[in-house]
Design a protein around this nucleic acid. Structure first.
Length: 351
DNA sequence: AACCCGGGGTA
DNA sequence: TACCCAGGGTT
């Protein structure tokens, strides 16, 4: 934290933000007399981790309608929260969200400093700074993908990420003003999201174009530099979608840690680069579905073969009753598998 | 420091 | 296809 900053750039940014701030459901508009609700700021920041604003909005509305306060969320059941999070991805966020809500509820409210916030589950360097600045008006500096890009361009920094992170943090800190640090943070992120975009930045309408070293050098579109990531391997697997005569589905709760941790899923093989062996969870007349489910995760492509069967009422395993089965409560790959299997079984079910 | 962890939009 | 997105946790 520092007391002086480059006011030429930050003033221009703030003036732009006052006129062009995005309207977002968790945001207090610039010039408003409202006080930000730390619960809503925290919830939005966690949802926005590696997730676009467009994808978050509907989830934010559902969560805040169902759980208006952190105490409400703290009192929720784990399964309800995981089901409500389904489809948003990075499911460790949902588990940490609940842990965090319960700690905060027990403490009687959110701590106000970056240091204290960062000890809470799911709150790291970025999110702690964002909450401290936006919800509690503290002079903290956020560094996310937007800020990295804006700083790399403003200062024409060619050091590749992630090596450049400390350098870019220094630049960002040098611009953070003592007044309205939260609006400043949101201004930089709005600039990165709407003007200083990864490709084809709109330098011609940028409020800080006169101070941008990369625009002067003509290097803006190529910044920030990043080390190339290796190509994703393809993994294969088999999933078994068994349905009883009463409409109940054979499912399993995935282990708490690891891929899709804590979510409902279909029993099946491991997902590996070697072709899987066909080992059904229960004995039945399994039929192969001719098409595959294709899905891409963070670090691999999955090609999932499906087997379907009608199971006897006496079959062992965890069954989800027809009236409790909701495709929307499944992670996307499991929802895709169900949609394909249902089409193959010619089941007419409302999703 | 390296690795793990979703899903959707975009060029 | 590859990159991007209001990153954090684990080892």
């Amino acid at each position: 934290m520092r007391d002086e900053c480059d006011t030429r750039i930050s003033d221009a940014l703030m003036a732009w933000y006052d006129r062009h701030a995005r309207v977002l459901p968790w945001r207090v508009p610039p010039g408003s007399n409202q006080t930000p609700d730390p619960y809503r700021i925290w919830l939005s920041e966690v949802m926005l981790q590696q997730t676009t604003v467009a994808a978050v909005q509907a989830y934010f509305h559902r969560f805040t309608a169902r759980w208006p306060t952190v105490q409400d969320l703290a009192a929720a059941q784990d399964d309800e929260v995981m089901a409500e999070w389904a489809g948003l991805g990075y499911y460790a966020r949902a588990r940490n969200l609940l842990k965090c809500a319960r700690e905060v509820s027990r403490m009687g409210g959110f701590p106000r400093t970056r240091e204290a916030l960062q000890t809470l589950p799911g709150i790291g360097p970025y999110t702690s700074a964002a909450i401290a600045a936006i919800a509690f008006d503290q002079q903290e500096t956020v560094l996310d993908g937007n800020v990295e890009r804006v700083m790399a361009r403003l200062f024409d920094e060619h050091t590749p990420l992630p090596q450049a992170k400390p350098i870019l943090t220094g630049y960002a800190a040098s611009l953070t003003p003592p007044h309205r640090p939260g609006d400043h943070a949101q201004a930089v992120m709005d600039l990165g999201a709407t003007i200083c975009t990864p490709r084809n930045p709109a330098c011609g309408i940028c409020p800080v174009m006169a101070k941008c070293a990369a625009r002067l050098a003509g290097t803006a579109p190529s910044l920030p530099r990043k080390t190339r990531k290796p190509a994703k391997p393809v993994r294969m697997g088999i999933a078994y979608l068994g349905r009883r005569a009463d409409g109940a589905w054979l499912m399993e709760r995935r282990p708490l840690h690891g891929l899709l941790g804590g979510m409902l899923g279909w029993p099946g093989s491991e997902w590996a680069e070697m072709a899987p062996t066909d080992t059904p969870p229960v004995t039945a007349q399994w039929r192969a579905v001719p098409e595959e489910v294709r899905h891409t995760f963070t670090h691999f492509h999955l090609r999932l073969s499906l087997r379907v069967a009608e199971l006897p009422m006496s079959a062992d395993g965890m069954f989800i009753a027809a009236h409790e089965f909701r495709p929307a409560a499944l992670p996307t790959v499991m929802r895709k598998a169900h949609a394909l299997a249902a089409a193959h079984l010619n089941i007419s079910e409302v999703s």
